[in-house]
Simulated assay, not measured.
Amino acid sequence: MKRSIRLIADDYGLAPGVSDAILDLIARGRLTGTSCMTCFEEWQQAAVRIKPLAGRAAIGLHLTLTDQSALTADSSLVSAGRLPPLGQFAAPFKGIKAGDVHAELDAQLGRFADTLGRMPDFIDGHQHVHFLPAVRDWLKTRFASAQKPILRGAPVVPLEVGVIAVKTAVIAALARGFDRTMQAAGFPILRPLTGIYDWKRPEDFAPTLRAAVSTMPEDGVFMCHPGHVDAVLEARDPMQKVREVEYAFLASDEFGAVLAQNGAVVRDSVS
Protein backbone atom coordinates (compact mmCIF):
# COMPACT_ATOMS: atom_id res chain seq x y z
CA MET A 1 0.00 0.00 0.00
CA LYS A 2 1.37 3.39 -0.98
CA ARG A 3 2.05 6.16 1.53
CA SER A 4 0.05 9.33 0.94
CA ILE A 5 1.79 12.61 1.67
CA ARG A 6 0.55 16.18 1.85
CA LEU A 7 2.24 18.90 -0.23
CA ILE A 8 0.69 22.33 0.29
CA ALA A 9 1.67 25.40 -1.73
CA ASP A 10 1.53 28.72 0.11
CA ASP A 11 0.63 32.06 -1.44
CA TYR A 12 -2.09 31.38 -4.01
CA GLY A 13 -3.32 34.85 -5.01
CA LEU A 14 -0.05 36.63 -4.24
CA ALA A 15 0.58 37.28 -7.95
CA PRO A 16 -0.85 35.90 -11.22
CA GLY A 17 2.35 33.98 -11.96
CA VAL A 18 2.25 32.29 -8.56
CA SER A 19 -1.38 31.32 -9.03
CA ASP A 20 -0.69 30.01 -12.56
CA ALA A 21 2.08 27.73 -11.32
CA ILE A 22 0.06 26.39 -8.40
CA LEU A 23 -2.97 25.61 -10.58
CA ASP A 24 -0.73 23.79 -13.05
CA LEU A 25 0.83 21.65 -10.31
CA ILE A 26 -2.58 20.78 -8.87
CA ALA A 27 -3.69 19.68 -12.36
CA ARG A 28 -0.57 17.49 -12.61
CA GLY A 29 -1.38 15.83 -9.26
CA ARG A 30 1.76 17.22 -7.66
CA LEU A 31 0.08 19.21 -4.87
CA THR A 32 -2.49 18.35 -2.23
CA GLY A 33 -3.72 21.92 -2.44
CA THR A 34 -2.90 25.50 -1.66
CA SER A 35 -3.56 28.23 0.88
CA CYS A 36 -4.95 31.50 -0.46
CA MET A 37 -4.04 35.13 0.23
CA THR A 38 -7.25 37.14 -0.12
CA CYS A 39 -5.94 40.63 0.58
CA PHE A 40 -5.02 41.62 -2.98
CA GLU A 41 -7.07 43.37 -5.63
CA GLU A 42 -6.73 40.38 -7.99
CA TRP A 43 -8.32 37.99 -5.50
CA GLN A 44 -11.70 37.94 -7.26
CA GLN A 45 -10.13 36.69 -10.49
CA ALA A 46 -7.93 34.21 -8.63
CA ALA A 47 -10.96 32.87 -6.76
CA VAL A 48 -12.87 32.27 -10.01
CA ARG A 49 -9.99 30.13 -11.26
CA ILE A 50 -9.61 27.96 -8.17
CA LYS A 51 -13.27 27.59 -7.21
CA PRO A 52 -13.91 24.65 -9.60
CA LEU A 53 -11.19 22.66 -7.80
CA ALA A 54 -13.19 22.43 -4.57
CA GLY A 55 -13.46 18.74 -3.72
CA ARG A 56 -10.52 17.85 -5.98
CA ALA A 57 -7.86 19.75 -4.04
CA ALA A 58 -7.58 21.25 -0.58
CA ILE A 59 -8.22 25.01 -0.61
CA GLY A 60 -7.17 26.86 2.51
CA LEU A 61 -6.73 30.38 3.84
CA HIS A 62 -3.23 31.85 4.22
CA LEU A 63 -3.68 34.42 7.00
CA THR A 64 -1.63 37.51 6.13
CA LEU A 65 -0.64 40.10 8.74
CA THR A 66 2.75 41.25 7.49
CA ASP A 67 4.37 43.15 4.65
CA GLN A 68 1.37 43.31 2.30
CA SER A 69 -1.73 45.40 1.68
CA ALA A 70 -4.52 45.36 4.26
CA LEU A 71 -8.26 44.96 3.84
CA THR A 72 -9.09 47.08 6.89
CA ALA A 73 -8.64 50.80 7.54
CA ASP A 74 -5.62 52.32 9.23
CA SER A 75 -5.33 51.25 12.86
CA SER A 76 -2.76 50.07 15.37
CA LEU A 77 -2.09 47.26 12.87
CA VAL A 78 -2.42 49.05 9.52
CA SER A 79 -0.50 52.13 8.41
CA ALA A 80 -1.19 53.81 5.06
CA GLY A 81 -3.01 50.69 3.94
CA ARG A 82 -0.08 48.41 4.71
CA LEU A 83 0.47 45.61 7.19
CA PRO A 84 3.60 45.83 9.38
CA PRO A 85 6.83 43.82 9.12
CA LEU A 86 6.93 40.60 11.12
CA GLY A 87 9.35 42.08 13.66
CA GLN A 88 6.68 44.44 14.88
CA PHE A 89 4.82 41.46 16.35
CA ALA A 90 7.78 40.48 18.52
CA ALA A 91 7.22 40.73 22.27
CA PRO A 92 6.25 43.11 23.66
CA PHE A 93 3.30 43.51 21.28
CA LYS A 94 4.36 47.09 20.46
CA GLY A 95 0.95 48.73 20.63
CA ILE A 96 -0.88 46.49 18.15
CA LYS A 97 -4.38 45.88 19.49
CA ALA A 98 -5.77 42.37 19.31
CA GLY A 99 -9.09 43.78 18.09
CA ASP A 100 -7.41 45.32 15.06
CA VAL A 101 -5.73 42.00 14.26
CA HIS A 102 -9.06 40.21 14.60
CA ALA A 103 -10.78 42.71 12.30
CA GLU A 104 -8.22 42.13 9.55
CA LEU A 105 -8.50 38.36 9.90
CA ASP A 106 -12.30 38.58 9.82
CA ALA A 107 -12.04 40.55 6.58
CA GLN A 108 -9.70 38.01 4.97
CA LEU A 109 -11.84 35.06 6.02
CA GLY A 110 -14.99 36.88 4.91
CA ARG A 111 -13.50 37.54 1.49
CA PHE A 112 -12.57 33.87 1.14
CA ALA A 113 -16.08 32.71 2.08
CA ASP A 114 -17.85 35.33 -0.04
CA THR A 115 -15.97 34.50 -3.24
CA LEU A 116 -15.65 30.73 -2.86
CA GLY A 117 -19.00 30.15 -1.19
CA ARG A 118 -17.48 27.99 1.52
CA MET A 119 -15.16 27.99 4.50
CA PRO A 120 -11.50 27.00 4.06
CA ASP A 121 -10.46 23.36 4.26
CA PHE A 122 -7.53 24.44 6.41
CA ILE A 123 -5.81 27.55 7.75
CA ASP A 124 -2.15 28.47 7.95
CA GLY A 125 -0.23 31.73 8.00
CA HIS A 126 2.09 33.85 5.89
CA GLN A 127 5.37 33.94 7.82
CA HIS A 128 3.68 31.56 10.28
CA VAL A 129 1.52 34.31 11.81
CA HIS A 130 -1.17 31.77 12.76
CA PHE A 131 1.09 30.85 15.70
CA LEU A 132 0.83 34.36 17.21
CA PRO A 133 -1.18 34.69 20.46
CA ALA A 134 -3.67 37.17 18.96
CA VAL A 135 -4.32 34.80 16.05
CA ARG A 136 -4.74 31.79 18.33
CA ASP A 137 -7.36 33.78 20.25
CA TRP A 138 -9.10 34.75 17.01
CA LEU A 139 -9.25 31.15 15.84
CA LYS A 140 -10.76 29.99 19.13
CA THR A 141 -13.32 32.81 19.15
CA ARG A 142 -14.21 32.78 15.46
CA PHE A 143 -14.75 29.03 15.33
CA ALA A 144 -16.13 28.56 18.83
CA SER A 145 -19.52 27.45 17.55
CA ALA A 146 -18.58 26.49 13.99
CA GLN A 147 -16.89 23.53 12.37
CA LYS A 148 -13.21 23.94 13.10
CA PRO A 149 -10.78 24.00 10.18
CA ILE A 150 -7.60 21.96 10.11
CA LEU A 151 -4.56 24.00 11.19
CA ARG A 152 -0.93 23.69 10.13
CA GLY A 153 1.13 22.71 13.15
CA ALA A 154 4.65 23.26 14.41
CA PRO A 155 7.92 21.89 13.02
CA VAL A 156 10.29 19.52 14.79
CA VAL A 157 13.72 21.07 15.34
CA PRO A 158 16.42 18.89 13.74
CA LEU A 159 19.17 17.48 15.94
CA GLU A 160 21.98 18.71 13.71
CA VAL A 161 23.26 22.27 14.05
CA GLY A 162 23.27 24.82 11.25
CA VAL A 163 21.27 27.57 9.56
CA ILE A 164 18.17 25.41 9.03
CA ALA A 165 18.21 24.18 12.62
CA VAL A 166 18.27 27.78 13.80
CA LYS A 167 15.51 28.82 11.38
CA THR A 168 13.38 25.87 12.45
CA ALA A 169 14.00 26.62 16.12
CA VAL A 170 12.77 30.21 15.64
CA ILE A 171 9.55 28.95 14.03
CA ALA A 172 9.15 26.30 16.74
CA ALA A 173 9.59 28.96 19.43
CA LEU A 174 6.84 31.06 17.82
CA ALA A 175 4.67 27.93 17.76
CA ARG A 176 5.36 26.86 21.34
CA GLY A 177 2.24 25.27 22.81
CA PHE A 178 0.23 25.78 19.60
CA ASP A 179 -0.38 22.14 18.69
CA ARG A 180 -1.38 21.14 22.21
CA THR A 181 -3.65 24.08 23.03
CA MET A 182 -5.36 24.28 19.65
CA GLN A 183 -5.96 20.54 19.58
CA ALA A 184 -7.44 20.80 23.09
CA ALA A 185 -9.77 23.47 21.68
CA GLY A 186 -10.99 21.01 19.06
CA PHE A 187 -8.88 21.93 16.02
CA PRO A 188 -7.35 19.11 13.95
CA ILE A 189 -3.61 19.69 13.49
CA LEU A 190 -1.33 18.79 10.57
CA ARG A 191 2.04 17.97 12.10
CA PRO A 192 4.91 18.06 11.85
CA LEU A 193 5.55 20.92 9.46
CA THR A 194 8.33 20.15 6.96
CA GLY A 195 9.73 21.98 3.95
CA ILE A 196 11.89 24.48 5.84
CA TYR A 197 15.11 25.30 4.01
CA ASP A 198 17.21 28.33 3.10
CA TRP A 199 15.28 29.74 0.13
CA LYS A 200 18.31 31.89 -0.71
CA ARG A 201 19.88 28.56 -1.72
CA PRO A 202 17.40 27.29 -4.34
CA GLU A 203 19.52 24.20 -4.92
CA ASP A 204 18.51 22.98 -1.45
CA PHE A 205 14.84 22.59 -2.35
CA ALA A 206 15.04 19.31 -4.24
CA PRO A 207 17.11 17.51 -1.56
CA THR A 208 14.74 18.84 1.13
CA LEU A 209 11.71 17.49 -0.71
CA ARG A 210 13.39 14.16 -1.50
CA ALA A 211 14.17 13.67 2.18
CA ALA A 212 10.61 14.58 3.16
CA VAL A 213 9.09 12.11 0.70
CA SER A 214 11.06 9.27 2.28
CA THR A 215 10.70 10.27 5.95
CA MET A 216 7.60 12.43 6.44
CA PRO A 217 4.85 10.75 8.48
CA GLU A 218 1.39 10.60 6.96
CA ASP A 219 0.07 13.17 9.44
CA GLY A 220 2.74 15.66 8.37
CA VAL A 221 2.65 18.44 5.80
CA PHE A 222 5.32 19.78 3.45
CA MET A 223 5.00 23.49 2.66
CA CYS A 224 6.33 24.86 -0.61
CA HIS A 225 6.26 28.11 -2.58
CA PRO A 226 6.21 27.39 -6.33
CA GLY A 227 5.49 30.15 -8.80
CA HIS A 228 6.37 31.99 -11.98
CA VAL A 229 8.03 35.38 -11.62
CA ASP A 230 6.05 38.30 -13.00
CA ALA A 231 6.06 42.05 -12.44
CA VAL A 232 3.43 41.79 -9.71
CA LEU A 233 5.50 39.29 -7.73
CA GLU A 234 8.62 41.41 -8.15
CA ALA A 235 6.79 44.36 -6.60
CA ARG A 236 5.35 42.39 -3.69
CA ASP A 237 7.73 39.74 -2.43
CA PRO A 238 11.49 39.10 -2.20
CA MET A 239 11.04 35.34 -2.70
CA GLN A 240 11.19 35.23 -6.50
CA LYS A 241 13.42 33.07 -8.67
CA VAL A 242 13.47 30.27 -6.10
CA ARG A 243 9.76 29.86 -6.83
CA GLU A 244 10.64 28.92 -10.41
CA VAL A 245 13.09 26.32 -9.08
CA GLU A 246 10.43 24.82 -6.81
CA TYR A 247 7.90 24.74 -9.63
CA ALA A 248 10.33 23.09 -12.05
CA PHE A 249 11.22 20.28 -9.64
CA LEU A 250 7.64 19.65 -8.53
CA ALA A 251 6.54 19.44 -12.18
CA SER A 252 9.45 17.25 -13.25
CA ASP A 253 9.67 13.59 -14.17
CA GLU A 254 12.46 13.41 -11.60
CA PHE A 255 10.03 14.22 -8.80
CA GLY A 256 7.61 11.65 -10.19
CA ALA A 257 10.41 9.10 -9.95
CA VAL A 258 11.14 10.12 -6.34
CA LEU A 259 7.50 9.46 -5.46
CA ALA A 260 7.54 6.08 -7.21
CA GLN A 261 10.83 5.01 -5.61
CA ASN A 262 9.40 5.72 -2.17
CA GLY A 263 6.01 4.15 -2.82
CA ALA A 264 4.37 7.52 -2.22
CA VAL A 265 1.48 9.43 -3.73
CA VAL A 266 0.42 13.03 -3.22
CA ARG A 267 -2.82 13.16 -1.25
CA ASP A 268 -5.61 15.27 -2.74
CA SER A 269 -7.08 16.28 0.61
CA VAL A 270 -5.77 17.48 3.97
CA SER A 271 -8.14 15.26 5.95
Rank of each mutant, 00 (worst) to 15 (best):
I96N: 05
M119L: 14
P92Y: 07
F205S: 02
S271H: 11
E244C: 10
I26A: 08
M223D: 04
D106E: 10
L159G: 15
V265P: 05
S76G: 13
D11C: 07
A184Y: 08
E42F: 06
E218G: 11
L83F: 07
A70K: 06
P155C: 04
E244P: 05
S35W: 00
H126L: 02
L25E: 00
W43A: 06
G95N: 08
E104I: 00
L71M: 13
Y197H: 06
I189N: 08
P226C: 09
T168W: 06
T38H: 01
T168P: 03
P158N: 09
Y247R: 09
A73W: 03
G33K: 00
E42P: 06
I164H: 13
G87L: 12
P226G: 10
G195D: 03
K200V: 14
A146S: 14
D121S: 11
I8Q: 05
R243N: 11
H62K: 01
A90V: 10
T194W: 12
T32C: 02
L174V: 03
F143A: 09
T32F: 04
E234A: 06
I150H: 08
T64V: 12
G195P: 04
L63N: 00
F187V: 02
R236D: 07
I96T: 09
H128C: 02
K94I: 06
D253I: 05
A146V: 11
A70F: 00
Q108Y: 00
V270W: 01
R191V: 13
F93R: 15
A169C: 09
T141F: 13
Y247S: 09
R236Y: 02
T194I: 08
P133N: 05
R136S: 03
T72H: 08
G81T: 01
V78N: 02
S145E: 15
P52M: 04
S271T: 12
A54C: 11
R6W: 11
T32L: 00
W138H: 00
S269T: 14
V266K: 00
V101Y: 01
G153E: 06
Q44W: 07
P217L: 10
F122D: 08
D204E: 15
V258P: 07
R30V: 04
Q44Y: 10
V48F: 06
L105S: 03
V170W: 05
G263T: 10
L116I: 08
A46K: 03
I171Q: 05
R6I: 12
K94G: 13
D20I: 04
I5G: 06
F89G: 02
V265F: 13
G263L: 09
P16G: 00
R176Y: 14
A107E: 03
D219G: 15
Q183K: 13
T72R: 11
L86V: 13
A172I: 09
